[in-house]
Design a protein around this nucleic acid. Sequence first.
DNA 1: GGCGATTTGTACGTATGTATT
DNA 2: CAATACATACGTACAAATCGC
Lengths: 85, 85
Amino acid sequence: MACRAAADDMPDFSVDSPTPVYVRVADWIESRIKSGELKSGARLPPERELASDCGVAYDTIRRATALLRERSLIITVHGRGTYVA
Amino acid sequence: MACRAAADDMPDFSVDSPTPVYVRVADWIESRIKSGELKSGARLPPERELASDCGVAYDTIRRATALLRERSLIITVHGRGTYVA
DNA sequence: GGCGATTTGTACGTATGTATT
DNA sequence: CAATACATACGTACAAATCGC
């Protein structure tokens, strides 16, 4: 599973913080892109998989990916998946 | 109640259509702004009230207002309400 | 400044529809 | 046609901001 490897250094999104969880998830994914761990064209895990891996709800992942789409960091294709821009 | 008056000519959002409900709700509100029925500075009903009045879920209203914010037609203030721009 | 009421924001979970493979 | 994956829609609960008292 593509995301499991990343789960090792995945932040604990359950910790209390003034920053919303969906922003922290987006920032975390952004940092993985910026660091080169996720290269352009790479496909992200399915949203539901991301949700369960991150221990957050599907809705939260949807918000996070919406943010990243606004930031033009990812591209999402209905029925296919989400890719690094 | 501010919105009840508008309920008379409110479209039936339950009818089947290829256009998502949240887009139709947004378009309906936009048409009420463009027609002058809702003037600049006017406050919209609370989102939950809009939801029940329109017979749709809170989530659907949130999507609709998000669209209208993107279109710069409304301004939303946390804890206060939503206003025509 | 506190308190309660109102209103938006976030988060969770689930079901069904639609597009791609 | 079946499996996979994103999109929409519903409902609920609690947190956070604002305002009037």
